[in-house]
Amino acid sequence: MKILVPVKRVLDYNVKARVKADGSGIDLANVKMSMNPFDEIALEEAIRIKEKGDAEEIIAVSIGVQQNQETLRTALAMGADRAILVVATDDVHNDIEPLTVANILAAITQKEGPSLILCGKQAIDNDFNATAQMLSAKLRWSQATFASEIDVEKDKVRVTREVDGGLQTIDAKIPAVVSVDLRLNEPRYASLPNIMKAKRKPLEEISPADLGVEMTQRLKVLETKEPGSREAGLILENIDQLVEKIQENVGG
């Protein structure tokens, strides 16, 4: 079985996003970029499935600018076997919509024939939480979102999902698209020897046109602005004052 793992290059989660003064978006010039944390969890899970002997090959895919190479090298160093870079734009500020990403991934899936696609549940930049579901619909595959546990069986994958109020377990027929949540695992760090080895692993570069996919944008971003902020309030002297404030505002 082959597993496909899409990985997105995003603003590092430790870096505060700054809104550009002209309202055109978030400033991504000269800031640290990293692999989307949820995609790291997806990749880690794919590696664990392979280590258990349930998969033979892991293909990492990234879609975006040329520099996404770095993200793919990280994926290869963690344990992906090969990588595909889809160079879809030359401007890092041009975010590619989940629907287009799903179209590109669907085309790659036709070509590569994976049986399982593991995605992060959302990218921490646009926060759409949509690619896995859209891809699964495009392929007419089964979907299991927000996974906190994944068991690959013969012709199905048993997934425990994080839902409001608790957990839901479902069986998804293979081939399947699974999106992963925070508690699934803790991703490993790539070791230095593996980082060196990753440099020799294959990384193929293609364009959306090579896959016959048209780049479209359905949502026009009219403005990006700072959120309304709250003012800092009072620091209270003692617990009694706090109790008073809580009592004033309960049921208020």
Binding site: L11, K16, A17, V19, I26, I124, D125, N126, D127, R218, L219, K220, V221, L222, E223, T224, K225, E226, P227
Partner: peptide
């Protein structure tokens, strides 16, 4: 977007 660090106005086509 960006964990609430920014608010985007989007127009759908």
């Amino acid at each position: 977007v960006y964990a609430g660090n920014a608010i985007q106005t989007v127009q759908s086509t």
